[in-house]
Computed example of a mutant assay.
Amino acid sequence: MKQTNPFYKSKKWINKRENVLRRDDYECRECKRYGKTTVATMVHHIFPLEHYPEYKLNSDNLISLCSKCHERMHDRITNEISEVGKRWQGRVEGALQGRQ
């Protein structure tokens, strides 16, 4: 069983998560791209925390998602980024690199 990173219990993350959900009007950004309104319950690291800790609190690297869309961002068995997840990475890559 995979252990949860202690970062997700930190006050900084809890506050950032709430700010991102509020920024996105508590709506799933992936569903919204297709004209659907779905309540977001998760905040997703587009570039994963495990591989890109420098982006862990960068708002450009965080999007609000419903649980269904969150599951589609990466393969839970291999932990590889899915094609949908890679498309999001392509969208935000420039913004992240410009802010380092």
Rank of each mutant, 00 (worst) to 15 (best):
K2M: 08
K2C: 06
K2A: 15
Q3L: 14
Q3T: 11
N5A: 10
N5K: 10
N5G: 09
F7L: 00
K12M: 00
W13P: 01
I14R: 00
K16R: 10
E18N: 06
N19V: 12
L21K: 02
L21T: 03
L21I: 15
R22A: 04
D25R: 09
Y26F: 15
Y26E: 13
E27N: 12
R29D: 02
R29F: 00
E30C: 06
E30Y: 04
E30G: 06
E30T: 03
C31D: 01
Y34M: 05
G35P: 03
V39L: 13
V39M: 07
V39Q: 12
A40R: 01
T41C: 05
M42T: 11
M42I: 06
H44F: 07
I46Q: 00
P48H: 09
P48Q: 05
P48F: 13
E50Y: 15
E50G: 11
H51W: 10
E54W: 08
E54T: 04
N61P: 04
N61E: 07
I63A: 05
S64V: 01
C66S: 09
S67C: 15
K68V: 13
K68R: 12
C69E: 01
E71L: 10
E71I: 08
E71T: 07
E71W: 02
R72E: 12
I77K: 13
T78Q: 13
T78C: 11
N79E: 10
E80A: 14
S82M: 07
V84H: 04
V84L: 14
V84D: 05
V84F: 05
R87Y: 03
R87A: 02
Q89E: 12
G90H: 03
G90V: 03
R91T: 14
V92D: 00
E93G: 02
E93Y: 05
E93H: 10
E93V: 05
G94K: 14
G94D: 12
Q97D: 13
G98Q: 11
